[in-house]
Design a protein around this nucleic acid. Structure first.
Lengths: 231, 231
DNA sequence: TATGTTTTTATGTCTATACATATCATCAAG
DNA sequence: CTTGATGATATGTATAGACATAAAAACATA
């Protein structure tokens, strides 16, 4: 009868009990009915609290088996992946964009393999630079599957980056993002004012529309960039 | 009256309408009552569907103002941050852990600044290596605030890593994670079998318990590591 | 003993209803 | 023209009750 009744209060109470080892890792916790009686609220309210804690990886729930405290909570870090324009302007810096190169090419072998494209697949290859206060911030190397997005051939990328165009024009269903540390090659070093061989924080992104690859993009960030999240 | 009624069906339908530009980016979509009539279900069901889409960053909802399609839908990428042991064993590789060094030290200035610790703060400094199939996978450099976790002085880290111990023993409320690309120094190069100067994918983590810093850890990953997510 | 079959049960979802609350829109007063 | 009060309204949350479903547990059969 602890006179708590909102689902977020229940979440807090449950988290507190996990933290103070009232309900230690791996243990089973009371069922929804019992908890709803204790908290003096409806089962649906307890259900929402428990469901959200399970989504956060704190609890592990199974029908009939009950709810347990996860032994090794898989924390889900949420990273904001904003538009590069938003990322730069939100720091107060001025955003500037330049299109370096734009060419229609048959997809190279590595790209065909990566995206599962047929031989002779036509692609549009773009290279762009994004500046923050006129300092090079991000080098973008992008390939677009022309077969999947025919209209891209007539798009003009001189004022807006391809990402902004794609988000507006092309729907997608799946995205894969990866983060890694790479070596700056001559090209990247030049564009980002680095030395060849310096480490470069790199993200790669592939997007599909119902299984059909749309675009592959590699983003190389300037010196000292780091991606942060707090939760 | 599209005869769909489960909340996940509604999510799919809404997503489809966003993709085919029935509801273009930035547009306002019908209210919950109207949609519940269209789908022939209760408002609560529509509410759950819309709430989850909003959590995913697809929709933007405001009381009274209604629900809009987010102009830039990929706002958040979720990464699972598993235990290193889990990460390695889930690939089928064998996990091995070694404690390299363990020392009680007064916190160095950079750490005091980073965590907001007082002068002369006592810390436990640990260096560990995590192997996948006997190949060095991750080098862990960790500092634990002894003041916040006195019992850590008697903990034995020879068989289990400090992360596993901390998760079991010490509750925390806040985490900050950052990703970056760093240069391998002599120490890291040796432990991870790299050359000095090679790029190293690095994550740093700070955890707090209600504002009180618990631990700072820097994880350096072996050559070619990348962090992936798909959604 | 081993293998299906049935029962039981905790979670999963849905409904109908109610009230709370933020905020947009309108209109009035200064 | 600005500021402040007042509705109207869409989302936010809660409730009680119902049925669905997965899976553990108990039972029955070969």
């Amino acid at each position: 009868m602890t006179a708590k009744n909102s689902y977020s209060d229940i979440k807090k109470t449950v988290l507190a009990r996990i933290r103070d080892h009232t309900w230690p890792p791996g243990s089973i916790i009371p069922g929804e009915v019992e908890l709803s009686e204790e908290f003096g609220c409806a089962r649906a309210t307890v259900n929402r609290a428990m469901r959200e804690l399970a989504e956060d990886g704190i609890l592990d729930r199974k029908r009939k088996a009950g709810t347990r405290v996860n032994k090794f909570p898989i924390r889900h870090a949420k990273f904001a992946i904003p538009l590069i324009r938003t990322e730069i302007t939100s720091t107060g810096a001025a955003y500037r964009y330049t299109l370096i190169d734009k060419k229609s090419l048959t997809a190279p072998a590595w790209l065909r393999a990566r995206l599962g494209l047929p031989d002779n697949a036509k692609t549009l290859h773009l290279q762009c630079l994004h500046f923050a206060d006129n300092i090079p911030f991000q080098f973008e190397d992008r390939w677009i599957n022309i077969n999947a997005v025919p209209s891209v051939e007539h798009a003009d990328f001189t004022t807006d980056g391809p990402n902004e165009w794609l988000i507006k024009e092309v729907p997608f269903t799946d995205v894969e993002i990866s983060f890694s540390a790479r070596v700056a090659d001559k090209e990247i070093a030049e564009y980002l004012s680095l030395s060849v061989g310096e480490p470069v924080f790199t993200t790669e992104r592939i997007t599909w529309l119902s299984g059909n690859p749309i675009t592959f993009a590699r983003f190389s960030f300037g010196r000292g960039y780091s991606l942060k999240t707090r939760f």
